[in-house]
Design a protein around this nucleic acid. Structure first.
Length: 651
RNA sequence: GCUGAUGUGGCACAGUCGGUAGCGCACCUCAUUGGUAGUGAGGAGGUCACGGGUUCGAUUCCCGUCAUCAGCUCCA
């Protein structure tokens, strides 16, 4: 048999060879570093025996898949350590994940001290360096095997496998055996650098009705240096966390007595949101939208028609006792039906469509207490909401328009590279969650698929993520911790118009049901602000900054001159302030930088005499920054300055 | 909602094995009038999240509530 290696070289063997033996044949070093093999593109265990011609790549911790194997083995070592220290713990599952690994145990929760102890125990296990051995047995035997070991969760897992399955196990020395499909390292010695990060609760099989297990998260790398770098990175991203930075920068705060999920947006945060809102409202007008302003609450009757009363009452803030009171009101969790009634208020001809309604809409959702987070998950938020009521023949074009508008917004915010697109589909195996016929679902999903393809947008398809009335495009972004949130959504709805008896009159004088697009152009302001804070580490693009320019007089002798410049800038709609305090210039600069103000204008004797300002910019070689500098230069001319002195500082 | 951790002046933290608290930054006052990341001196500010309990006495121990954080679950 001929084995072709990644570099194109070939090895010939007369008898079957295990991947690890081929690695050893290439070099001892490679055999030591090997984590897995990639045979004809498929990741396999090092113990896999090759008996015919194949392409082989030996994966090490430097390869993504190799690192996954290393981390998976690390999770087994952790499980062994836990069993040694806490024999009563029942093992469940322990996979590798993007940034490391975890293992879930049924046992009492672990403290940080427990984790440190487990870490020490893991070090002992790794030092001993037991070999991992793979073996299999038939399903029935495997069930008995795990019953004998009193591991009920493992028994349950095996019972879910097909009856004729050969069940594979990995044993590390005499200490620990786990049900596992692999692949794994040859020896626990391969784990050179690891760290247990945290412990928390998790439900068995991800179902909240099941037992709560104790999960330990850890991470592992091929080298100590990589681990160190990763831990530093984790520290680092915390500094970008909007929930910390946003409070530090005085953009928002929370107050115990006001309540969970009800952040207070402070003046600077409010200014940023106002800038975004004015931009979006004007932009939507350019794109053919008209604006509505509808009530924040309605009688329960409305939600009964929309279906929310039956399906989502738990998520709404309801006033009054539905049993005792005649009229019960609820704060709105969405804007849809309100805009539908705007549509219905006047008769519509086919000529009136599409109707594009936009609203800066505040919504209220009674989220579960554990769900609230900073500005990304709140109980009251304001969204750039909109509904397009369109003729079926206009649907594709209008849907495209919504996508184009969303893309434009992302571009202007400078985040178009940071999002992923998702076609959120229904789940044919869970039909009671949706209304409408399967054919309609398949057809509309195909329409959206075509649109995304035509616009050359990369996207993934997610089953079971659709709204109950139709499929949608979700545009998601990750926060600093890697958790994904939907920023923008565009939903295809061919069904709801009937519920609200919406129609238009066509050419022949017949009543026809319109289609509806539910959409946002840049999502909700609070969440977008959170995203921008993290994206820019607080250093927002100048146009969004609540303070764009700060004027710093060297001493109070130049106060009047500084004010004259402030006046001129304000006349030109630049957000600026003057720091008139009797502080030294170095101190004022320090504070301005910490406040992340993009431009400082230092003025002293020299500037006043020459009618100039000294610009100190946070940017270097940045286009947008240049524009503002040119602009300031223009303004400086207006106040009869001769030149502009520039001091640029690398951040 | 679930599991766990946390809650001390505006912020970031010490501390009290039970005898009502400190530092730094910020704030205020005075002096200093300066040239691109922290001038100096002085001062004020906290019922130690809230409500119960134990105790001669609770910020400290116990219980509950609220809030914050991590994870799970959820997100029309």
């Amino acid at each position: 048999m001929i084995i072709t290696l990644k570099d194109g070289s070939k090895k010939e063997y007369s008898s079957p060879m295990r991947v690890i033996d081929i690695a050893a044949d290439i070099s001892e070093g490679l055999a030591r570093a090997a984590c897995a093999g990639e045979v004809n593109g498929e990741v396999v265990d090092l113990r896999t025996e090759l008996c015919k011609d194949a392409e082989l790549n030996i994966l090490t911790a430097k390869d993504e898949e190799g690192l996954r194997v290393l981390r998976h083995t690390a999770s087994h070592v952790m499980a062994e350590a836990v069993k040694r220290l806490h024999p009563e713990a029942k093992i469940t599952i322990g996979p590798a994940i993007d940034q490391g690994f975890y293992y879930d145990f049924d046992c009492a929760p672990f403290s940080r001290e427990d984790l440190d102890e487990i870490e020490q125990e893991m070090k002992k296990i790794i030092k001993k360096g037991e070999k991992l051995e793979r073996f299999t047995m038939p399903r029935d035997e495997a069930i008995q095997y795990m019953k004998d070991r009193e591991e009920p969760y493992k028994v349950e897992l095996i019972e879910d496998l097909p009856e004729d399955a050969e069940i594979s196990f990995y044993r590390q020395g005499e200490g620990f055996t786990d049900l596992c499909a692999g692949p794994h390292l040859m020896s626990v010695k391969g784990i050179k650098a690891f760290k247990l990060l945290s412990s928390s609760g998790a439900y068995w099989r991800g179902n909240e009705h099941n037992a709560t297990l104790t999960r330990i998260y850890g991470t592992a790398f091929g080298t100590k240096e990589e681990l160190k770098a990763h831990l530093l990175h984790l520290e680092d991203i915390k500094k970008r966390d909007h929930n910390k930075l946003g409070r530090e920068m005085e953009l928002f705060t929370t107050v115990d007595v006001i309540g969970q999920g009800l952040p207070l947006i402070m003046p600077k945060g409010a200014k940023i949101i106002q800038t975004m809102q004015r931009w979006i409202e004007d932009l939507e007008e350019e794109w053919g939208y008209v604006r509505t302003k509808t009530p924040f609450m309605a009688k329960s009757d409305l939600y009964k028609i929309s279906g929310h009363w039956d399906h989502y009452k738990e998520g709404m803030f309801v006033f009054g006792d539905p049993e005792a009171d005649k009229e019960v009101y609820a704060l709105r969790p969405m804007t849809c039906p309100f805009q539908y009634y705007v549509y219905k208020a006047t008769p519509k001809s086919y000529r009136d469509l599409p109707c594009r309604y936009g609203e800066t809409s505040t919504l209220f959702r009674n989220e579960d207490s554990g769900e609230m987070h900073g500005l990304t998950r709140v109980r009251q938020f304001t969204i750039s909401e909109g509904h397009l009521i369109v003729r079926p023949d206009q649907m594709v074009e209008e849907f495209k328009g919504c996508l184009a508008l969303a893309k434009h917004c992302l571009q202007v915010l400078g985040v178009e590279e940071d999002v992923t697109y998702h076609l959120s589909k229904w789940d044919p195996d869970n039909r009671e969650k949706y209304i409408g016929e399967p054919e309609v679902w398949e057809e509309t999903e195909q329409h959206i698929r075509d649109i995304l393809t035509e616009l050359e947008i990369d996207f993934t398809e997610d089953v079971g993520e659709a709204a109950f009335y139709g499929p949608k495009v979700d545009i998601n972004a990750k926060n600093v911790y890697g958790k994904e949130d939907t920023m923008i959504t565009i939903q295809w709805d061919a069904l709801i118009a009937e519920r609200f008896d919406m129609y238009y009159i066509d050419q022949n004088g017949n009543k026809v049901r319109p289609y509806i697009i539910h959409r946002t152009s840049m999502g909700c302001y609070e969440r977008t602000l959170a995203w921008l804070i993290e994206k820019y580490a607080g250093k927002l693009p100048t146009w969004l900054c609540p303070e764009q320019v700060r004027i710093l007089p060297i001493s109070d002798k130049y106060a009047a001159y500084a004010e004259s410049i402030e006046k001129e800038l304000k006349k030109n709609k630049i957000l600026c302030t003057v720091d008139q305090r009797s502080e030294k210039i170095g101190f004022k600069i320090r504070e301005t930088r910490l406040a992340r103000v993009p431009y400082m204008l230092v003025v002293g004797q020299k500037e006043e005499e020459e009618k100039t300002v000294s610009v100190r910019s946070r940017f270097k070689g940045d286009e947008g920054a240049k524009k503002l500098e040119d602009f300031i230069e223009e303004i400086c001319k207006e106040i009869r300055t001769k030149e502009i002195r520039k001091i640029e500082v690398e951040e």
